[in-house]
Each structure stands twice: as C-alpha cells, then as structure tokens.
Write a protein that binds this DNA or RNA. Structure first.
Length: 192
DNA sequence: GACCAGATTGTCT
DNA sequence: GACAATCTGGTCA
C-alpha cells in the first residue's frame, strides 16, 4: 500500500509540506542495505522572507539546489562535521525547503546502529545530523530527485496523530516563528 | 539532570 | 578570518 510521493506533493506551500511530511516514511536503498524511518519532526525554511534560510542571501553554489524544482534533496555540510537533509518545496526559482529533523526507525535498525555506534532506538535518528548518519545520507545525495530510487519518501498510510508547532531550533536569527512541526509525544523527536 | 566546551571544515565577507 | 539549520562527552550536582 506504500506509494512514493510525487513532485506534486512537494510543490505545495512549504509549511503545508512540513506538516504533511509527518508520518511519511523516508527510505534509502543503499548498497549496504535498506534503511527506513517515519518522519516525526520537520522545520520550514521560507526563502527570502526568512533570515535563517540559506537562500535568503541569494543563489550561490551551495544553495543552488534550493532554487531548483521541488522534490529534490538539499544536503548541506555544517559545523565542520555534520550533514543535514532537506526537501526542496515550491517551484523552480522559489528557494524554500523543509529540514527533516528526526525519524523513528522502521527498517534496517541494525544497519543504523552500526553506522551510528549507538544501541538505543531513540538515539539513532533523533536529530538532523544523526538521521543523515543513520540513513547513510551525505554530500553524494545532494540534488537527488526524491521521486526516484534509491532515496525517496513514501506514504504508508500512517496517521501521524496530534501535530504541534514549536519554535525552530539551532538557529541564531528569526527564532520567533513557529515553523517546527512535531508529532506530539513521540519519543524520537529531537527535543522535548 | 543541567550546563559547557570542543571537534573541524565548507562557505561567504 | 569568522561563523555555522549540531552532537558528544565531560563536569558538577
């Protein structure tokens, strides 16, 4: 009953995509094995209006993917050691994206444990940099079309339950917006 | 449990 | 040359 999300899904307004992604399943069919996790936490980044958004200061080599068509992966490197995974929304030329902040592991938990060096399920993908390690996402995945294998998001008909909006985390500016969507009470959300 | 500093490098000024 | 959409391990309680 699983259905890979089409480009149409990602062309919606960014905050709507952020909310609708909760309960959807991110799947990576890597050479080492398949890992999958349900998305439990996301953040919207709203282009020029949003000082915290990488694209707010124009199109550069780094942010180029965000300016492209919806449904592509924007993976960036930060703090000298971490990757973060985003989904590009809207249409070509409108540089907005949704940061996937946390997953609940569904498949390939043993592979995630091996990649992360952690045993506890809630430690495997409960943060943007953690989930990239657990899912094997890195620079190579930047620009990948999420409507196709080996990396995609699918709808398995899971009801996310109650959704709550919170301030965004880990940024220095524009922290007043409630643009972080979480599944209420889910233990895999990055912070309480 | 809460708080703090260190790791480490791509990207932009 | 400064800083970053983070995580981890240490210290102190």
């Amino acid at each position: 009953m699983a259905r890979i999300l089409t480009r149409k899904f990602y062309r919606r307004p960014t905050l709507e995509v952020a909310r609708l992604l909760l309960g959807k399943v991110l799947v990576h069919e890597s050479p080492e094995g398949t890992t999958a996790g349900m998305i439990v936490e996301t953040e919207g980044y709203l282009g020029p209006e949003d000082a915290a958004c990488h694209s707010a200061r124009g199109c550069t080599a780094r942010t180029e993917v965000m300016f492209g068509p919806a449904g592509h992966a924007y993976v960036y490197f930060t703090y000298g050691m971490h990757y973060c995974f985003n989904v590009v929304t809207r249409e070509k030329g409108i540089a907005e994206a949704v940061l996937v902040r946390a997953l609940e592991p569904l498949e390939g938990a043993d592979l995630m444990r091996k990649r992360r060096g952690k045993q506890h399920l809630a430690d495997l993908a409960s943060g943007p940099a953690k989930l990239c390690v657990a899912m094997g996402i890195g620079r190579a995945e930047n620009g990948h079309d999420l409507c196709s294998r080996p990396l995609y998001i699918e709808d398995r008909g899971i009801e996310p339950g109650e959704v709550v909006w919170r301030p965004r985390i880990g940024i220095r500016v524009a922290t007043e917006h409630l643009w972080r969507a979480c599944i209420a009470g889910n233990p895999h959300v990055s912070k309480k």
